[in-house]
Design a binder for these strands. Structure first.
Length: 717
DNA sequence: CGTGGGCGGATTTTT
DNA sequence: TCCGCCCACG
C-alpha cells in the first residue's frame, strides 16, 4: 500500500513523530506547528503501516470540537470510516466506560449527567438540607471545592479532616452531596472521570481488558490535563507504555482550573526512555509576530524551552496603540477593521481578543454604531438555555423518575400550583432516603394538604402518561409531544416580549435538533437516552450565525487553537492583563504571560497591541499603566501608532475632559507605604483629588484596599 | 405566582 | 456600572 501521503509534506520533526518506533513519546508542539496534523497522521500511520486495528486506538482530547475534527481528518487520510476507534473527550470516553459497566461502577443503569448549573442547584439544596448559611458556605465555592477534590482523585474518605471544624463540616457537605447524587442517579462532570478511573483501578479483569485492547493511546493538549486525567491515562497504558502525548507548556493557560503543566515534566520520569520531539517550525505567523511572541514568553522561567521560527516572510511590524480610554481603543480597532474590509478582506478574518468578557461591551457598541456585523464567543450555549433545560428535564424525568434535579426543575414549570411550601414538605420527606418522585407519588396519603396533593397527583399522572405515549415514537416526535403536553410551549407562547419569542423558537429548534440527531451506534443507547447524553456532554454552539461573515470577538482563552489573519490584542494594562488577581498571587503571572503568548500567536499576518490610559471598570475610572508584556516586545519589532488628525485630542470628545489628576503628594504608583492597621503595602492606583483623593493599596497581609487619603494616614517607606 | 427593587459580586471555562 | 439572584409584596 502506498503510504507516502502520510509523510509527504511533513518537516523532519513532524515526520519523526509520525513514524517513531513504539514507546512513550512526548511531542512539544509550538503554536501553529501542525500538531493536529502530526496526531492524525500518526494514527493513520499506525493503522496503515504498523497494521494496527482502529479498534486498538484511543485518541483523547479536551473538547468535542477537537475530537470531531480529529476523527474527520483521520477518516479523510484513511479514506474510510473508523467507527471502532475511540476518539473523544476525557469525559465522553469515561461516560462510555461507565455506560458499558454501570453495574461494576455502582451506578444505576439510567444515570444522567449533571452540568455545572445542575450541580450548583444540588449543592444549594444540600446546604439548605444541612441548615447551613449560604453566606458562610458560598455555593459556588463549595461546588469548586468538591470538584477540586474529585479532580485530585479524592473521595470524602480520602480527605483528612482532623479537628478542623470547618473542614469537618465541608466533609459533611461533600458526603451528603455524593449521597444525594447517587440516590438520584446523577453524575457530575468530575464524577465521570473519577468514577471511570476508579472502575479500572479497582477492577483487575476490566483493566486488563482495556489495556490489552488499546495499544495506541494518544492525547492532545497534554499540558491541560489535571491530576485525575493523567492518572486515567497512565492506567490505560501501564502495561505497554504506548502513550503519544502532544502538548505545549507555553500554552498552558488553565492552571486555575486544575490543569497541571507539571504533568509534562513528570512524563519523562513516569515513562523512562521517553522520546521527546520538538515541533518548532511555525506555519502560521510572520517572522515579526513570532519574534515578538518569542521575546515575551522568554521572560518566563521553568520552560521546557522552544523557539518558534518560520520559513516565511518578515511581515509587517507589530503595531501598538495607546488609547485615551476604552472608547478610543474600540474606535481605533473598529477603524482598522473597516480599513481592512475596505481593502477587500473578509470580516471573519479579524479577531478582537480581550482578557475578560466585560471588555467586549465597548467593542460591541462601536461595531453596532458602525454597522459592522460581529459575533461574540462565549455566553449561554444552546443546551444551557433555561427553556431547553426545562424541556430536557421532562425527558430526563421520564427516563429516570429518581432524577431529583429534573423533578425540582419542572414540578412547577409551567406553574401548576405546587409552591415552595409543598416542595419543602417533599424535600423533608425525601431526606430520609427516597427520591422526590417517590414521595410525591404517595403525597396524598402522606398528609399533604388537599390542593397540593391534587396538583402533585396531576403532575405525576402527566409524567406517567407522557412516558406511556412517547414509548413507540421517533425521537423528534417524542420531544415534540412532550413540549406540547407538558404545557411548556404554550406557557412560553403566552408570555409577551422578544425574550419569550426567542424561547419558543429555541424550543422549536430543539425538535429540529432531535430530528437531526444521529446517535453514536457504539454507545448502544436508546435514542432518547443518547440525545440526553449528547445534550449534557456537548452543550452546542454559543450562537447561531457562524456562517455569516462577521468580526470575531472573544476572550484570550476562547481563542486558543484558532488563527486569524488580523488580530487585535486589547486592554494591555497592568491590573487587567496581567489581571490583578494574578498579580496578587505569586506564581500566577507566568500563566498570564502564556496567555499573552497564546494571543499573539493567533495572528497570521497582522497583530495590533492596544491599551488605554484610562478605563472605566465596575463603574470606576482607572488610570492604568501599560502592561509589562508590552515592554517585553523588542522595540525594533514594534511600530507605535499615534493618534492622528481627526482622531486626535483636538476633536475627540474626551480631549476636553481634564487630564488625569496628578497623583496626590507622596503617592507614586508602585511605591511602598505603611498603614497603622493594615501594615505595609504597595500603591496600585489612585483617583480623585483634594480631600476626595483615594488610593488603592495592596497590603501584604490585608490584601488590596481603597483608602481615603485624608483619613488613612499612610506613611511612605 | 409574577414582578420589581435591593443587594452583592464582577477574570479566564470545557465537559 | 451592570447584571443576576433573592426576597417581599401585590
Amino acid at each position: 500500500m502506498d503510504v507516502s501521503h502520510l509523510i509527504e509534506g511533513l518537516n523532519d520533526a513532524q515526520r519523526e513523530a509520525v513514524t517513531a518506533e513504539p514507546g512513550p513519546l512526548l511531542v512539544l508542539a509550538g503554536a501553529g506547528s501542525g500538531k493536529t496534523r502530526v496526531l492524525t497522521h500518526r494514527i493513520a500511520w499506525s493503522v496503515q503501516v504498523l497494521g494496527a486495528s482502529p479498534l486498538s486506538v484511543m485518541a483523547v482530547t479536551f473538547t468535542n470540537k477537537a475530537a470531531n475534527e480529529m476523527r474527520g481528518r483521520i477518516e479523510g487520510l484513511l479514506d474510510r470510516p473508523v467507527g471502532g476507534m475511540w476518539a473523544g473527550t476525557f469525559h465522553g470516553l469515561s461516560h462510555r466506560l461507565l455506560r458499558a459497566h454501570w453495574r461494576e461502577a455502582g451506578l444505576p443503569q439510567g444515570f444522567q449527567i449533571l452540568d455545572a448549573q445542575d450541580q450548583l442547584r444540588i449543592v444549594k439544596r444540600v446546604l439548605r438540607q444541612l441548615g447551613l448559611d449560604e453566606a458562610y458556605w458560598p455555593p459556588k465555592k463549595v461546588q469548586w471545592l468538591i470538584n477540586s477534590y474529585k479532580e485530585s482523585g479524592r473521595r470524602p474518605a480520602q480527605v483528612p479532616a482532623g479537628d478542623d471544624p470547618q473542614q469537618r463540616q465541608f466533609l459533611r457537605i461533600y458526603e451528603e452531596y455524593e449521597a444525594l447524587c447517587l440516590r438520584a442517579g446523577l453524575v457530575d462532570f468530575a464524577e465521570l472521570l473519577l468514577r471511570a478511573y476508579e472502575l479500572l483501578a479497582r477492577n483487575e479483569p476490566l483493566r486488563a481488558h482495556y489495556q490489552h485492547r488499546f495499544r495506541h493511546v494518544l492525547v492532545d493538549e497534554f499540558q491541560d490535563t489535571n491530576e485525575i486525567q493523567y492518572r486515567w491515562l497512565k492506567l490505560f497504558v501501564a502495561a505497554h507504555r504506548q502513550l503519544f502525548a502532544v502538548g505545549d507548556d507555553d500554552q498552558s493557560i488553565y492552571g486555575w482550573r486544575g490543569a497541571r503543566v507539571e504533568n509534562i515534566l513528570q512524563f519523562e520520569q513516569d515513562f523512562p526512555g521517553t522520546r521527546v520531539i520538538r515541533l518548532e517550525q511555525n506555519y502560521r505567523s510572520t517572522a515579526n509576530i513570532l519574534n515578538a511572541a518569542n521575546a515575551v514568553i522568554a521572560h518566563n522561567e521553568g520552560r521546557l524551552g522552544k523557539k518558534l521560527w518560520t520559513a516565511g516572510d518578515q511581515g509587517a511590524p507589530v503595531r501598538s496603540y495607546t488609547a485615551f480610554n476604552e472608547v478610543d481603543e474600540a474606535r481605533f480597532v473598529v477603524d482598522r477593521i473597516q480599513e481592512w474590509v475596505a481593502e477587500g478582506h473578509r470580516r471573519d478574518q479579524v479577531a478582537v481578543l480581550y482578557r475578560s468578557n466585560a471588555q467586549s461591551r465597548v467593542f460591541e457598541e462601536t461595531l453596532v454604531n458602525e454597522g459592522v456585523p460581529y459575533r461574540v464567543y462565549g455566553g449561554l450555549r444552546f443546551f444551557e438555555r433555561a427553556e431547553i433545560k426545562d424541556a430536557l428535564a421532562y425527558l430526563r424525568l421520564i427516563a429516570n423518575r429518581d432524577d431529583d434535579a429534573s423533578f425540582e426543575r419542572i414540578v412547577n414549570m409551567p406553574p401548576r400550583g405546587i409552591g415552595n411550601r409543598t416542595l419543602e414538605a417533599l424535600r423533608a420527606r425525601a431526606a430520609a432516603g427516597g427520591s422526590l418522585w417517590s414521595v410525591a407519588r404517595d403525597a396524598a396519603g402522606a398528609g399533604l394538604g388537599g390542593r397540593a396533593a391534587n396538583a402533585l397527583a396531576g403532575f405525576c399522572r402527566l409524567i406517567e402518561t407522557l412516558a406511556e405515549e412517547i414509548r413507540d415514537l421517533e425521537l423528534a416526535e417524542q420531544v415534540d409531544l412532550v413540549l406540547g403536553r407538558s404545557g411548556l410551549l404554550d406557557y412560553y407562547r403566552e408570555q409577551k416580549g422578544e425574550k419569550a419569542e426567542g424561547r419558543v423558537e429555541n424550543l422549536e429548534e430543539l425538535v429540529t435538533a432531535a430530528r437531526q440527531f444521529r446517535p453514536d451506534e457504539a454507545e448502544a443507547l436508546e435514542p432518547l437516552h443518547a440525545f440526553l447524553v449528547h445534550a449534557a456532554l456537548e452543550a452546542g454552539e454559543g450562537q447561531a450565525g457562524e456562517w455569516e461573515d462577521c468580526v470575531q470577538l472573544m476572550s484570550l482563552h476562547a481563542a486558543k487553537g484558532l488563527e486569524f489573519p488580523l488580530v487585535f490584542l486589547t486592554g494591555l494594562e497592568e491590573g487587567l492583563f496581567p489581571h490583578q488577581h494574578a498579580l496578587d498571587e505569586p506564581g500566577r503571572l507566568e500563566e498570564e504571560r502564556r496567555l499573552c503568548y497564546v494571543g499573539m500567536t493567533r495572528a497570521m499576518r497582522e497583530l495590533y497591541l492596544t491599551w488605554a490610559e484610562t478605563r472605566r471598570l465596575h463603574g470606576r475610572e482607572h488610570y492604568a499603566r501599560p502592561s509589562r508584556f508590552l515592554a517585553e516586545v523588542p522595540a525594533e519589532l514594534v511600530q507605535e501608532i499615534r493618534p492622528t488628525g481627526g482622531a486626535g485630542p483636538g476633536t475627540a470628545p474626551w480631549a476636553s475632559t481634564p487630564a488625569p489628576a496628578a497623583p496626590p503628594a507622596g503617592i507614586r504608583l508602585g511605591g511602598r507605604v505603611r498603614h497603622a492597621q493594615f501594615g505595609d503595602g504597595v500603591i496600585l492606583n489612585y483617583e480623585g483629588r483634594g480631600e476626595h483623593a483615594r488610593v488603592q493599596v495592596n497590603f501584604e497581609q490585608a490584601g488590596s484596599k481603597w483608602l481615603v487619603l485624608a483619613y488613612a494616614d499612610l506613611q511612605p517607606i
